[in-house]
């Protein structure tokens, strides 16, 4: 075993890359759930974002346009879900699962011509002065722009949810939709916007997988990341900064266990391989023991104005 082979700086840098897709998807889903809607279609929206982002990047040669397209595609798919659950009042769990199935099928249909095609790469930002800071520079300031975008989204989500009136209304709708309705807030509209935001974030997360992390289009390539994102939202007790913590923790342990294996650490591989899940569950248990879970009161319940 030679743990000296593991370069902690590179490890931290690849941690941020590994965590970004689930971070984006999870922060979007956190907002959706805060508004009282449970959308289990994250995987479907991610994979759709992945393929649409990839296709647009290949055709335009511009990854940035691809990311925008991925966000729009994720939002469009989520609005389909929104119309079904908010206006037609279908069951949220079943509709979410259907959305995942639909997204997986749709993406492989769209993706057929793009198998084996290479994507234009997203240039890393070499932030001039900051990137040269010893130690911290390479970890924090030499990533592709999407890593920073994801962090900005987390910060903005935190700010809006906890420091603005719009955030208060959104939380109110999620806690008790009848009360919010009685106060005159448009429950359905608020939720529709939240769902669209969640879809856009999931789309971005998916595109990050196909444009940066892997980078190519392979059918089914998100391989369950959407489900992890759903778990992280619960893990984080629906709080934005904890979503960041959860995503980085999960991504970090995933990358660390691969590095430990490559370095030949004398820890049984089975234990290394399950460690991201075990640690996530452990933290979840510890948080639960402390009492406050913060699950929105109306989460998953169907809202009908006349009831």
């Amino acid at each position: 075993m030679d743990l000296g082979q593991i370069n902690p700086l590179l490890l931290l840098a690849s941690l941020m890359v590994a965590a970004t897709p689930i971070l984006l998807a999870a922060i979007g889903e956190a907002v959706v759930e805060k508004s009282g809607v449970l959308n289990l279609g994250v995987e479907g929206m991610m994979i759709t974002g992945a393929v649409v982002g990839f296709a647009i990047s290949v055709n335009t040669g511009n990854p940035a346009v691809g990311f925008v397209g991925a966000a729009l595609a994720g939002a469009a798919l989520s609005l389909l879900f929104g119309v079904l659950v908010l206006y037609l009042m279908s069951n949220q769990v079943a509709t979410g699962l259907a959305l995942t199935l639909f997204g997986l099928g749709l993406s492989s249909l769209i993706g057929k011509p793009y198998e084996g095609v290479k994507a234009p790469s997203l240039a890393r930002l070499d932030i001039p002065v900051l990137g040269d800071i010893p130690v911290l520079g390479p970890i924090l300031f030499r990533h592709d722009p999407m890593v920073y975008v994801s962090l900005i989204i987390v910060a903005a989500t935190w700010f809006v949810l906890t420091r603005t009136r719009a955030g208060l209304i959104l939380r109110g709708v999620g806690e008790n939709h009848d009360a919010a309705h009685a106060l005159g807030y448009k429950v359905v509209h608020v939720r529709l916007l939240a769902i669209a935001f969640g879809g856009a974030c999931a789309g971005l997360g998916g595109a990050y997988v196909s444009l940066v992390r892997v980078p190519q289009w392979v059918e089914g390539m998100t391989a369950g990341a959407g489900w992890i994102a759903l778990a992280i939202v619960v893990f984080a007790s629906w709080r934005p900064w904890r979503v960041l913590l959860g995503a980085y923790l999960f991504g970090g342990i995933t990358v660390l266990q691969l590095n430990l294996q490559a370095a030949g650490a004398a820890i049984p591989v089975d234990i290394l391989a399950i460690s991201p899940y075990v640690v996530t569950i452990l933290v979840l248990v510890i948080i639960s023991l402390r009492g406050s879970h913060g699950a929105p009161g109306s989460l998953g319940r169907i809202f009908h104005a006349t009831h």
Partner: peptide
């Protein structure tokens, strides 16, 4: 511990390259 997971395979390759 997977036959197919592009993200994980990419991460694994990355870890090997870094070492």
């Amino acid at each position: 511990y997977t036959w197919f997971d592009p993200s994980k395979e990419a991460d694994a390759a990355q870890a090997l390259l870094e070492q």
